[in-house]
Write a protein that binds this DNA or RNA. Structure first.
Lengths: 230, 230
DNA sequence: TTTTGATTTATGTAGGACATATATACAAGT
DNA sequence: ACTTGTATATATGTCCTACATAAATCAAAA
């Protein structure tokens, strides 16, 4: 039998550690028992006892859940289930330097997709005050060629403001996390190109134009990025 | 001074545990030292020694990074930095039952935003074969009123296929994770309403229509959901 | 040379010990 | 009655030691 066959047939034995198992077990336990935020968990010792592992292992598993914000622990009072910050875990991993190129590209496209899909919610929630602020940002753009750093910051401020205008906190934080990746992918460009529709143009559409016009404007604004897609 | 003021002014003292600190420290260390995937880390004992904490604490921190997929460990060979599965951590936390209502709503809107923004990439990558498959799914819809369960599964299959057609693996997995939440929010509706544009209509647009037509069609299809937004 | 076996080393797991913070109860002071 | 102080029990946080286990390296044997 060829070696490749062996690999396919047997495969590497799953080397899950006890902490892995316990983590999964605990998660299922919480789910099955319909734990709700605020409910108290058994003590570490009780868990270790019930699971037949050392307290060390239980602590490693709990430490993971604690990192995700799924549980909070107070001395003596014990541990309680809490509502995790869903983006917190995301944030920890989102580093352009350790993400593989394929995923990096995927996230870049995800960002473009969001940007193109924002119009509906944006038009539902935009307020005059916000538009004024957005306009201020747009008009502060490159008054005399202040250079690359300013341009990038201004770009971030403008698009960030748009997300903020949706009133969707999660969405805003999400795009904020995507910024480094966006910046990283763009930095790979040889010649940075700028779309025909400027920030000021977009603001004007936002003031008087329709959703569809805004969407088209945004597409034109992002055109250089779309052009790079394959 | 009122009690509420007290709470706002003082707040709870951050009781960060050593594991929290070490986790952060390690993450910064990896970043500062420009560790790349595949590079070997110092041993647990060396880390504990350098940081002046017990091996236990180091292990808790490492356990977290391991869960995120940032590091892999082999016995004797030590630990190596690896490229994390960015959505893996997300998946762990995405449970409608423990996420607070505000975030739930945010994610619902995020999903709608994605759906509305897909057109560009979809039209860039759609293939005849995929459209045929999509059509098959659309036409299998509710041949004789098979009931709720079938309708939901079909809905998932249809929209899932659209995401798959973008060729963006991350995007597809992402939407797949969002499904439970989408389903949960929708289940809160009293009377499930269906948009005027059906799946079959969308397929037909995809075959002959333009991006803009598709976007409009999708909006019409999702109209009941958009109508619920405030 | 190839295979087998011994050695070394880092991780995985267990268990014990103790400090620390805090909920609870109770006592004391106003 | 209400606050304030004290004592106790308890669960977590941290450290330490010990040992099993797997794997890389090297030595010995076929």
């Amino acid at each position: 039998m060829a070696k490749t066959d062996l690999i396919k047939d047997l495969g590497p034995i799953s080397q899950r550690t006890m902490a892995d198992v316990v983590e999964k077990e605990l998660r299922e336990y919480l789910k099955k028992k319909l734990f709700k935020p605020g409910d108290a968990l058994p003590s570490e010792l009780e868990l270790a006892d019930a699971l037949g592992v050392s307290r060390n292992v239980v602590r490693e598993a709990l430490s993971r859940l604690r990192m995700l914000g799924m549980i909070e622990t107070k001395k003596r009072r014990g541990m309680i289930l809490s509502t995790p910050d869903i983006l917190g875990s995301f944030e920890r991993v989102l580093d352009p330097l350790i993400i593989d190129d394929g995923t990096l590209q995927d996230i870049f496209e995800l960002r473009l997709t969001l940007e193109m899909g924002l119009a509906d919610i944006l038009y539902l929630r935009k307020k005059k005050k916000d538009i004024a602020e957005l306009e201020a940002i747009a008009k502060s753009q490159d008054p005399g060629g202040k250079g690359q750093a300013f341009r990038i910051n201004n770009e971030i401020a403008f698009h960030g403001k748009i997300y903020q205008m949706t009133g969707n906190e999660t969405l805003m934080r999400f795009q904020n996390m995507l910024l480094p990746i966006f910046g990283y992918v763009i930095s790979l460009e040889k010649v940075p190109q700028i779309g025909k529709v400027s920030h000021v143009d977009l603001v004007n559409i936002l003031k008087d134009g329709t959703k569809e016009e805004f969407r088209q404007g945004m597409h034109e604004h992002l055109k250089p990025h779309f052009n790079r897609l394959k």
